[in-house]
């Protein structure tokens, strides 16, 4: 059951990504990517490794997080319900099978696509900064979001008002329950990570709107739809969504500040430099796409940079490592 749903997800999202590459990325960027991919991967490797580590930790933490949450026992369900009242019910009053189908599709497929595609789209840019900012922002989302989950116990509207919340994803499409329960625990609704990750992509798409103007439009449409879908499907409260947007803003702002501040390769290089200068030379100098920058310079350098990818070499070879490494 699970493999079938997963397979379907992979196929659909792959198709969406392929079409989007054709529409948004274009042939020329792909051609450049073919030439420069090694350098770009090297640039994004440290933060990717960090993200992978956080995701791995995430899967473990989700297992034990709820036990810790219940020991702390800070239950926000009733305060949230008390404050926002029956907004979710108002939203659900627009219920129609077509709308439910749309939002269910968006919640599962649209969401995964929205997270996956910008990784590819930004990878296709010679300037690796947007990619690194994106991955850093993802990492921050998980770190901060999980931190909040550990402290806060809150159940979503579907657990509070099961009879009133009609358009339930898991009743309309029970098969998705197998998928989402692998990653979600029912006490983890504040804030909405669906919303915050979607909003993160949206905010970054706004920043890169000069490069990908059409993608910005699509990301906005999808992001807004995802935020609404979490409420429409009875999974999140409006307050969770609002908190998710705030979290996304913080993550994007932090990512902007943090990316480029620390250089992993430069740090490695400096280590090597101190032992043998020739070793460092052959290592970093091998990369044709990146001018070699002395480590002392790259660590202190502040990045003034534009989002245009017309200046592919505006970045130094320094690799980012966010604070939380």
């Amino acid at each position: 059951m699970l493999t079938q749903v997963l397979l379907q997800l992979v196929v659909v999202v792959t198709l969406m990504v392929l079409v989007s590459i054709a529409v948004f990325v274009g042939r020329y960027r792909l051609r450049d990517t073919r030439l420069e991919w090694r350098a770009r991967i090297r640039a994004a490797a440290p933060v990717s490794a960090l993200l992978a580590a956080v995701l791995l930790f995430n899967s473990v933490a989700r297992q034990y997080g709820p036990d810790v949450s219940w020991i702390i026992h800070w239950n926000l369900t009733w305060p949230i319900y008390d404050v926002e009242g029956e907004f979710i019910l108002w939203l659900q009053s627009f219920e129609a099978p077509a709308i439910t189908a749309y939002f269910s599709f968006i919640y599962i497929y649209g969401y995964v696509f929205l997270l996956v595609f910008p990784v590819i789209a930004y990878f296709a840019l010679s300037n690796t900064r947007p990619l690194r900012e994106l991955l850093t922002a993802y990492t921050l989302n998980y770190v901060l979001g999980l931190g909040l989950y550990v402290f806060i116990v809150a159940y979503g509207p579907r657990n509070m008002m099961p009879e009133l919340v009609d358009a339930l994803l898991y009743d309309t499409y029970p098969q998705y329950q197998h998928l989402t329960r692998q990653v979600n625990r029912n006490t983890n609704v504040f804030p909405s990570l669906h919303t915050s990750l979607a909003a993160t992509v949206m905010f970054l798409a706004f920043r890169t709107r000069a490069i990908y103007p059409k993608w910005f439009l699509l990301a906005t449409g999808l992001g807004v739809s995802i935020a609404i879908s979490t409420m429409y499907l009875g999974i999140h409260w409006a307050i969770d969504v609002a908190a998710g947007i705030v979290l996304a803003y913080i993550c994007v702002a932090l990512a902007h500040v943090l990316v480029g501040r620390w250089s992993f390769t430069a740090w490695v290089a400096s280590l090597r430099d101190s032992s043998t200068s020739t070793g460092a030379d052959t290592n970093t100098g091998a990369n044709a796409g990146f001018p070699k920058t002395p480590p002392s310079e790259s660590t202190s350098k502040s990045h003034s940079h534009s989002d245009s990818d017309s200046e592919p070499e505006s970045e130094t070879g320094s690799d980012p490592e966010p604070e939380r490494a």
Binding site: M1, Y170, D171, P174, Q175, Q177, H178, R181, N186
Partner: peptide
Amino acid sequence: DPRSTSAIELVESDS
């Protein structure tokens, strides 16, 4: 399986 709907589906699909 935490919901009746998905539990029913498992029985109906011979899982």
